[in-house]
Design a protein around this nucleic acid. Structure first.
Lengths: 190, 190, 190, 190
DNA sequence: CCCTAATCGAGACGGTACGTCCAGTCTTGCA
DNA sequence: TGCAAGACTGGACGTACCGTCTCGATTAGGG
């Protein structure tokens, strides 16, 4: 994204939203591999240069279109029962990664990040998953008085299902109840 | 890969190894994103058709060329001291994912797998990482008498560093000592 | 145009003729200005690279497609009556430049040559107009015993109507009879 | 060019001259083929719309910027010696077409005119070359008492070198002395 | 010792996305 | 209303790679 200095025709908001919606739609319809800048522009009814002017590749468009929405899907209210909150979060996480559109976008981008440094930077600049877990993780940290940092604890929480799913295994054999129990134990909760 | 029925000119072993070496070299030189079937064939001094005849896409070539070698890099002898073996394995794992060529190939393929079902199947058919951990994990499982399956325990071991690295964070802030301790604790070891 | 060394798939003759016909058709239908390499390829049902492989720009295709045919249109049999042969040639020339398709192609290329050195070279390498006049001009030269070179005499013959037409004036006010008479006089014929 | 009705802000003379100078400069620097309306506007420090408001294409700008100047370059004083005047005019003509900037602009426009009717009209509306020859041609016509019209005689004078040069041949083999002699002869001068 | 069959290298084929450029139009705020 | 700035849709540019194809040449059996 780029800032304007007030001179000249201002950026068209309608073009912006048309592009973001086009990307959302196309991701579902044709998948990330078949997603092209050309296709996005045509679907949005927008000149190709207009897409390139504001986003430098399909990863950036997709990030703005989908990934930022992920927060809503991963937000879980804290009930006070730490173990239940952990489990609810894990359920939301697994659903996000395996069933939601935003999750598909996230996985696609994370995949791209493995061989495109620009995308890697984009994702690392604001780690949606890590952020989403901050609430539950800190609640547990406070309750347990652990010496682990939020970052370390978050990895312990998210890592196991993340590994199973990204490695391509069936998500149905993930038992979030057990995972929640083990997380409480590793955090030193009674 | 395809089998022949014995009639006609046999498959050229030299062409096969030339292709595999070309892929290895090119991955290092230009990276996965710039790796193309055309480039592989030219580098190997081989006809394009010859590559397509035996592998259907660059993921398959790369898998045969690099990923299978990963086992050697991840193999760690068991010393008997479970906690130390876990830690040694984690060190090998982090090094593999962040520094080795085979690890780069693995991450690239895992990335591709997020938006290409064929590659996902290829990787899931033999999970190199999971296999590599079987030794240490089972040693700990036996020692602790846990109720966790090997699969579950492996996810608990590999997941945390895997998540940190794949998410694009700096690997240097991964403390394998702490991770090993926490793994022992979550497995119920004294 | 490029030569092959016998290795690999040979050049497709059908693709070649399809391109040449497409150019011929398109020149008539949309005119030279709207003639594009993309349009040619699509009209010919041919890959874009295939066009670029054998011709480096639309001028080259058009030259091969049309201009070389010009010789037929400008060929006039010599009757023996020099003055009549000159007049017949001038009629053919004016018709060629103002009414024929090949003539339209020639004028378009000559126009392009004014600001593209490559095209200028292409045209100068074989001057279709100059060649076409050689017969009549030499007949007159022999009859008159002039000291003018063929080249000089040709310019005197072709130049006047060429200038009128290229300058965009109406061709109908060109009197080839008078032009023929004057050419005979300037050549020193009785 | 367009007229204003006196209301509102008057046309900026500085913008006009900036555009004309920009075109002159760019023609020399990048050539006609690479001359663009966008480039002209940017070089002139002028809005793109401002260029389109007063000229409808690059040919019009170039015509106003350069071609009208051609008259000065082609003007030759009449000495009274008709044959010498003809020769001097031919020298000026050849120099104009092959060496001068205005001549390059003229050739470029004449080239464009071969495939753009608008440009053809623009050039035909005032034939710079024909006009420039009027003086010498009429002097010779008067002296010779020929029956040829000015238009016809002009074509006989300009045509031969015009053809040689526009066809892309080297200008150095044009012998203006011989051409002048032959012109005198064809006009019936003693 | 040919014959059949499959492989090999090379390289052209039709397609299509890439990212850039310009055309010609439009929408700002300022003069 | 003109103007500079600059974003807009649209489309051609020339390049690259895709996966397929068609050559001639090579290398094995099996008759």
């Amino acid at each position: 994204m780029v800032e304007s200095n007030g001179r000249g025709r201002p950026r068209s908001e309608s073009a912006r939203t048309a592009v973001l919606h086009a990307v959302d739609d196309l991701l579902v319809e044709v998948g990330y591999a078949a997603l092209t800048m050309k296709g996005i522009a045509e679907r949005a009814g927008v000149g190709r240069q207009t897409v390139y002017r504001w986003w430098s590749n399909k990863a950036e468009v997709l990030y703005e279109a989908s990934v930022l929405d992920a927060q809503h899907e991963l937000a879980a209210p804290l009930s006070g029962d730490a173990r239940e909150d952990v489990r609810a979060y894990l359920d939301a996480l697994v659903t996000f990664l395996t069933r939601s559109h935003a999750g598909a976008a996230y996985r696609a981008l994370l995949g791209e990040a493995q061989h495109d440094p620009d995308v890697a930077l984009l994702l690392a600049s604001r780690d949606v998953l890590e952020d989403s877990a901050a609430g539950v993780v800190d609640a547990v940290r406070t309750a347990s008085g652990t010496t682990l940092s939020t970052q370390q604890a978050t990895a312990l929480l998210i890592g196991p299902p993340f590994f199973r799913i990204l490695s391509g295994h069936d998500a149905s054999d993930i038992d979030t109840g057990t995972l929640a129990d083990r997380f409480m134990r590793v955090m030193g909760c009674p």
